[in-house]
């Protein structure tokens, strides 16, 4: 099973990188943009087939390594199983 994990700075925390990108977008004409959050994305091939198990694994990975929950939130997305 494949999955995507996205890690963002926590909502309540200032995201200077996102802010910088937002002002850059405004400079090149995209002035309607209200917010940009800059994060990281990970694509994983989990080597397990069970969605429940995959979700548990991913949550554990995020808590242990992929995100630092003091300053970051994460989102988990299970991707459709690859036919191959």
């Amino acid at each position: 099973m494949k999955a995507r994990v996205t890690v963002y700075p926590r909502k309540e925390i200032l995201d200077p990188q996102g802010k910088a990108i937002q002002s850059a977008l405004a400079r090149v004409g995209f002035r309607s943009v209200r917010e940009v959050r800059a994060g990281k994305s990970f694509e994983l091939d989990l080597g397990v087939d069970d969605a429940q198990q995959a979700g548990d694994l991913l949550a554990a990975m995020c808590e242990k390594l992929l995100a630092n929950t003091v300053v970051e939130d994460y989102e988990i997305e299970l991707l459709a199983a690859d036919a191959s």
């Binding site: 925390i13 200077p16 990188q17 003091v70 300053v71």
Partner: peptide, 17 residues
């Protein structure tokens, strides 16, 4: 030390990027 939770908190990119 903060990542290992031996000290509290976290260190983020500098304000000035």
């Amino acid at each position: 030390l903060t990542e290992a939770k031996l000290l509290p908190g976290a260190l983020r990119p500098n304000r000035g990027q």
